[in-house]
């Protein structure tokens, strides 16, 4: 149990996907201008991470390792993630259109999101067991959502502040991310 908790805290706070591991930066800078879209994106990424980790764990454990074709994992993981995203998208369109309107556009962006591919590769690299992979995926997703939400709150205010012309937009967002990263490095001593 302590093992799982330390994986969760490690993934969510200490090795935060965005601030420390630098995974999923495109949505971080792309959709962190409004709080509501940041939370939707975070939730969509967390969900896909969870499903993708489950699927790739099963494939790795029962196909890649027994047949000794682990070197095929890049091709297989990316195909699994791409098809999962498609299936989820179809499913959401047919069952809950309101949900699709809220999450749909983010789903399409998720295939090429390195956070999702990243968590599946990390699980494989650490040879996590099934519960460990799931906890790692949830931790990473929640940490991702948390930082996305914090960042969007800050950026909503930054829009109104008077920063130099060449710093407006992305550059100032990077400087803000640095300060957030420094703050998060304080979690380093927890484990």
């Amino acid at each position: 149990m302590t093992e799982l908790i330390s994986i969760f805290v490690g993934m969510a706070l200490i090795n935060n996907f965005i601030l420390v591991k630098f995974l999923g930066l495109c949505p971080f800078f792309g959709v962190s201008k409004k709080l509501s879209s940041a939370v939707s994106m975070g939730a969509a990424v967390t969900f896909v991470m969870f499903i993708a980790s489950t699927a790739t764990w099963v494939i790795t454990e029962y196909i890649l390792i027994p047949f000794e074709v682990e070197f095929m994992k890049i091709v297989i993981y990316i195909l699994v993630i791409a098809s999962l995203v498609q299936i989820i998208e179809l499913f959401v369109i047919r069952t809950n259109y309101a949900l699709y309107n809220a999450f749909g556009i983010y789903l399409a962006l998720i295939t090429t999101n390195c956070a999702v591919m990243g968590i599946t590769l990390l699980n494989a690299q650490q040879s996590y067991s099934f519960p460990e992979s799931i906890v790692a995926a949830l931790g990473a997703g929640i940490g991702f959502t948390l930082v996305l939400a914090i960042m969007s709150g800050i950026r909503e205010r930054l829009e109104m502040s008077d920063s130099p012309k060449s710093m407006k937009g992305l550059p100032i967002a990077f400087i803000t991310a640095m300060l957030l990263g420094l703050a998060f490095s304080g979690f380093g001593g927890m484990i």
């Binding site: 550059p171 967002a173 640095m178 990263g181």
Partner: peptide, 19 residues
């Protein structure tokens, strides 16, 4: 060389390019 430094360097270089 730590992670916050990466954000700082790229942020400043981007601003420089734009300037």
């Amino acid at each position: 060389v730590l992670s916050p430094g990466a954000f700082l360097v790229i942020g400043l270089l981007m601003a420089l390019f734009r300037w």
